[in-house]
Design a protein around this nucleic acid. Structure first.
Length: 485
DNA sequence: TGAAATGTTGGGGCG
DNA sequence: ACGCCCCAACATTTC
């Protein structure tokens, strides 16, 4: 540390799920208040919220982009590996920083670590300052009339609309992120080996995604330009490019909900977008907020059902069935298409997520937590609040969940939301020659050589692994077990 | 942000 | 012309 640099002049900014320069309150405050700024990302591969495989692919590219963007403004992104709290304390001491800035986390482990770090820094005579970058309102801000937190989405959404976002004005990206004369060492990101090699299951990811802040902005602009008008009608159609596909960018904080909110509202005000369609889109952003609201108030919800009655639910242990589900070999076309889209692209359309989740938890009676873990490992948008809240919603154990008896019929859903079968054809090539009428529930060929689909278990496409009617009835009687308690 | 079973209605074929 | 049956089409109830 140069002798003429006082601790007051140096800030460490600990970046986590806020990998952007624009509208980043912690980074903006550090740059405005301190002469030198040291942005840090810590990769904790053993942490409870370490990213799964697909998330690591994304993280690699996101950090590469962020590092370049920071360098473009005179700064240097420091990469370290290990436990976050320890590495931050280490870097703070290396550079002699008097201040640490970060944007808040809301998962219980993140909160605990941040609380711990704050007191450790205080003991050392350093200041820690935290901000809100990732939520429109803090989870403790919105309250019901009786002073509690919201457990039902609709009143939550009404209240959120009334309150509006906490920061109505955009926080510009800092002009300059001045690195200290002797910047601390940084790992080379290649040494983290975040990218898959053998097999390279992410080979196709780059065709679908451009991680990083610029990619996020382009995605939002493209959505607002072309798809928001049709959003209310088409958002449930996996065969159409009708959704924003912002979820991974939001999960990594390459864009924040404030930016989405402001730009969408600006389109409404400029009459570039119909208000009802645009607000329908924002209500989906609000589902994300609602999930964080739930996670904050039910910190254990990743491990335990919100409705305690579900503790006694008779889930089946069936490794073989679970594996067929993960591989997209259930014999139910829409389910298999979804699971293969997930594997190939790191993402799945939301309507199809509900269908495959219903199939797993109801037709197969497999614990939602197994599905949640699989999604965590394979989704590029894996998010500790959204993922868990959505699984509990489908399973029926969540706060504002679908009633357990609301069991999807995957074939009916397929006919309704993929009417021409185009989505199935994209991800299940074995069925690509079937007409729309047959593709949702292919019939086994009558005689030898009749179709070559192999629906009786042959090589091309399997017969349905379960009878939908029977397993529906089985799910309902399983529900009777806990309904009585 | 269901689906299936059951109930109701009304048009048309038919003796 | 009339009653009867069938069955979409829609509504309601149940899980």
């Amino acid at each position: 540390m140069p002798e003429n640099t006082a601790p007051e002049d140096i800030a460490v900014v600990w970046l986590r799920h806020d990998l952007r320069l624009a509208d980043n309150p912690a980074l903006a405050a550090a740059c405005a208040q301190r002469r030198f700024v040291v942005p840090v990302y810590v990769w904790d591969e053993h942490g409870p919220f370490a990213k799964g495989g697909a998330g690591k692919w994304w993280l690699h590219h996101s950090l590469t982009a962020l590092s370049r963007d920071i360098a473009g403004r005179g700064g240097k992104l420091i990469l370290r590996r290990g436990r976050g709290l320890e590495r931050i304390l280490q870097i703070v001491s290396e550079v002699g920083a008097g201040h640490v800035y970060w944007n808040r986390r809301y998962d219980p482990d993140g909160i605990a670590e941040d609380t711990d770090l704050k007191s450790r820094l205080k003991e050392q005579g350093r200041r820690a300052t935290s901000f809100n970058a990732s939520l429109l309102r803090e989870p403790w801000e919105l309250e019901t009339k009786t002073g509690g937190f919201f457990k039902v989405f609709t009143p939550f959404w009404k209240t959120l609309q009334g309150a509006g976002p906490a920061r109505p004005d955009e926080e510009d990206a800092p002009q300059r992120i001045a690195a200290p004369a002797h910047a601390p060492d940084s790992d080379d990101i290649e040494s983290w080996r975040l990218l898959p090699t053998r097999p390279n299951w992410a080979a196709e990811f780059a065709d679908h995604w451009s991680p990083g802040e610029r990619g996020a902005e382009a995605r939002l602009d493209a959505f607002l330009d072309t798809a928001v008008d049709g959003y209310p009608d088409d958002r449930n159609r996996p065969d159409l490019p009708a959704t924003s596909r912002l979820s991974p960018y939001l999960a990594f904080g390459e864009i924040g909900p404030h930016q989405v909110w402001r730009r969408t509202m600006a389109r409404i005000e400029a009459q570039d977008a119909p208000a009802d369609a645009a607000m329908k889109f924002l209500s989906e952003i609000a589902w994300r907020e609602f999930s964080y609201n739930l996670l904050y108030h039910y910190p254990d919800m990743g491990a335990a059902p919100i409705k305690p009655a579900f503790d006694a639910f008779p889930w089946r242990d069936d490794d073989d069935a679970f594996e067929r589900w993960t591989k997209g070999e259930t014999g139910v076309p829409i389910v298999d298409a979804g699971m293969r889209q997930l594997w190939r692209t790191g993402w799945m359309h939301n309507r199809v997520r509900m269908i495959v989740a219903s199939f797993l938890t109801k037709n197969l009676l497999i614990d939602w937590r197994r599905g949640e873990r699989w999604f965590w490992d394979t989704l590029v948008d894996a998010d500790p609040a959204n993922n868990v809240a959505s699984w509990q919603w489908v399973a029926g154990s969540g706060a504002d969940a679908a009633p357990y008896f609301r069991i999807f019929n995957p074939i009916t859903q397929s006919e309704k939301f993929d009417p021409n079968g185009d989505y199935i054809r994209t991800y299940v090539p074995a069925l690509s020659q079937l007409p729309a009428k047959e593709i949702h529930a292919p019939k086994a060929p009558d005689g030898p050589g009749a179709g070559g689909l192999g629906l009786d278990g042959g090589p091309d496409y399997p017969a349905p692994m379960v009878d939908l009617k029977e397993t529906r009835a089985r799910a309902l009687s399983a529900y009777d077990v806990i309904k009585a308690s």
